[in-house]
Amino acid sequence: MANDSRLAAWEFFGSELKRRRENAGMTQVELGSRVFVSGGYIGQFEQAIRKPQLDVAQRIDEVLQTDGFFERTWRQLINDKRYADYFAAVVELERLATKICEFAPTVVPGLLQTAAYAQAVTLAANPFVTDGYVEEKVTARLERADILKDATRPEYWAILHENVLRTPVGGLEAMAEQLEHIAQLMRERTVWVTVLPYAAGAHASMGGSLKLMEFEDAPPVAYTETEYSGTLIDDPAMVKRTQRTYDLLRGTALSPSASLALIESAAEDYRRCASTT
């Protein structure tokens, strides 16, 4: 679904929410209090500025007695087949976030990937698919990164384990290009990236990648992922634990300047090796 048609669909969701709320004789504040969000948040749903999470859509159905209409509509809109089922909702939340913090233990985060790197990652996990499938996945991943180009882009923080720098995904040229891309974004102050070095040894997140997202007027959420599965977390206590894990990782990582130097050095090594082969 193209971006403009997706926006039109969310605008329909919002107009239906407003119509049914008004038919029920409820203000935005009254509905918000009954589904555990602010009245302003309901207003932003109705204007398609923000998208509700699934549990909020379900509570709206219960309060307005809409027989599952908003849950069904939400599932149709969020069901972008370019992404794994467990990740589609995360993509929507990335577009709304004011701050994103990631820890990547093995692979460059999707928001930082180049086309060649994304293609290599896709093919490694799906060696028998068509070129069309690969192109669709790579395009979707690059489109996600558009949020870093906007004037209203979120603050973006990433901690990369040194594994990410040392694994030549896609070959020497592709890896040099990938690290040069990250270094350029760092120099432009578009992103804040640090590296967790091998010398750090054991660290706070040994189980997989994690992402934290903050929003202007909604509670923060966390997302953890292992191979073939991911979990979106909005329980405040669990989000707080995830934030603590991220803080511990950040405290163990190299400084920004040392991280940039290491990334640039690794890129130069890949570039030099590529020129001699």
Rank of each mutant, 00 (worst) to 15 (best):
P52C: 09
D55T: 15
V56K: 13
A57D: 10
A57F: 10
A57H: 12
Q58A: 15
R59H: 12
I60R: 00
I60K: 03
D61Y: 06
D61I: 00
D61H: 02
V63W: 02
Q65I: 08
Q65W: 03
T66C: 05
T66V: 10
D67V: 02
D67H: 10
F69D: 09
F69G: 04
F70Y: 11
E71F: 03
E71S: 15
R72T: 14
R72Y: 12
T73S: 13
T73H: 13
W74S: 02
Q76I: 14
I78S: 15
N79V: 07
N79I: 00
N79S: 15
D80Q: 10
K81D: 10
R82Q: 09
R82F: 04
R82A: 10
Y83I: 05
Y83P: 05
D85E: 13
D85Y: 09
Y86Q: 04
V90E: 03
V90L: 15
V91S: 00
V91H: 02
E92V: 11
L93M: 11
L93S: 11
L93P: 01
E94V: 02
E94Y: 08
E94P: 01
R95S: 10
R95H: 12
R95W: 10
A97V: 01
T98C: 12
E102V: 14
E102R: 13
P105A: 08
P105F: 06
T106E: 08
T106W: 09
V108P: 03
P109I: 07
G110P: 00
G110R: 01
Q113W: 04
Q113F: 08
T114W: 01
T114P: 05
A115H: 05
A115L: 07
A115Y: 01
